[in-house]
């Protein structure tokens, strides 16, 4: 696994994958949104507002998927001390936070015509709000240290604690929301959904996954260059110090 710890090798691999991921993203999102907007039928209860589902639900999936991905990367980073895993976790966090935010806002926009309010303390939305806060905490902790290595390790531990807690939080919030109000309108009761709605949903979800892959690869590349810049800066400073000492001596 440490084969790809070499930055040059990783960058070569990333450069080979990136064109496919980028083209795949464009194609999947193009087809998915075309189907979602033009082909898929309106819902018999919710009418055309159901089209918000095609961004809301895949965003929610992505927000959860990316947190798990961060947790896996964090475990790899902590156990095998693999440097790329740290970078992958750091690169993923803003993307996950973006999707969580998108889920919240589209949920609110969907909820307005359905519930009549901009915000309802519905179980799913509330869990997503907490997940969004978990992302913010992860990002804040990553950037809270002078020494970036410490930030990586602290954030990795936090991500693992978070991923163990997510099922507990989810369960407790569901329990709480069913105690306080009837079930939500955002029904997505698995197999009963009609194929003409399921296909666009799945294709958009694939597009989001490929988008995530593209952005994460670019961000890791960027982080690798940043690390090299820091090393060069340090070398310049050291060289200057050596020169200064030579002049004084």
């Amino acid at each position: 696994m440490h084969r790809f710890a070499n930055p040059a090798r990783f960058t070569r691999l990333a450069d080979r994958i990136l064109p496919f991921a980028a083209v795949g993203t464009v194609v999947a999102l193009g087809v998915g949104f075309y189907l979602a907007l033009f082909v898929a039928p309106g819902d018999y209860q919710q009418g055309e507002s159901v089209r918000i589902m095609y961004v809301h639900v895949p965003s929610a999936w992505m927000a959860m998927f990316i947190y798990v991905a961060i947790a896996v990367a964090s475990a790899v980073a902590l156990i095998w001390r693999h440097p790329l895993a740290d970078l992958a976790a750091k690169a993923s966090s803003p993307v996950g936070a973006g999707f969580a935010f998108l889920t919240l806002v589209t949920g609110s926009l969907w909820g307005r015509p359905m519930w009549g309010t901009w915000w309802e303390w519905d179980g799913r939305l509330t869990s997503m709000l907490i997940l969004f806060f978990l992302y913010l905490g992860h990002m804040a902790l990553l950037n809270a240290f002078e020494d970036s290595q410490r930030g990586y390790r602290a954030a990795a531990i936090l991500a693992l604690v978070g991923v163990v807690n997510i099922p507990i939080i989810k369960f407790s919030v569901d329990w709480w929301s069913t105690l306080h109000q009837p079930a939500s309108v955002m029904r997505l009761d698995g197999p009963t959904i009609h194929p003409s709605m399921l296909w666009p949903l799945l294709i958009v979800a694939v597009g989001f996954k490929l988008y995530y892959l593209t952005v994460v690869l670019l961000r890791i590349k960027s982080e690798l260059i940043a690390a090299r810049l820091r090393a060069l800066d340090l070398a310049t400073v050291k060289a200057a110090e050596v020169q200064g000492q030579a002049v004084q001596g």
């Binding site: 949104f33 309106g42 009418g47 055309e48 507002s49 089209r51 918000i52 961004v55 809301h56 806002v105 589209t106 926009l109 969907w110 307005r112 015509p113």
Partner: peptide, 12 residues
């Protein structure tokens, strides 16, 4: 969008 334009388009 069947009257839901204010909600659907901003989402997208």
């Amino acid at each position: 969008m069947g009257g839901y334009a204010v909600y659907v388009w901003p989402s997208l």
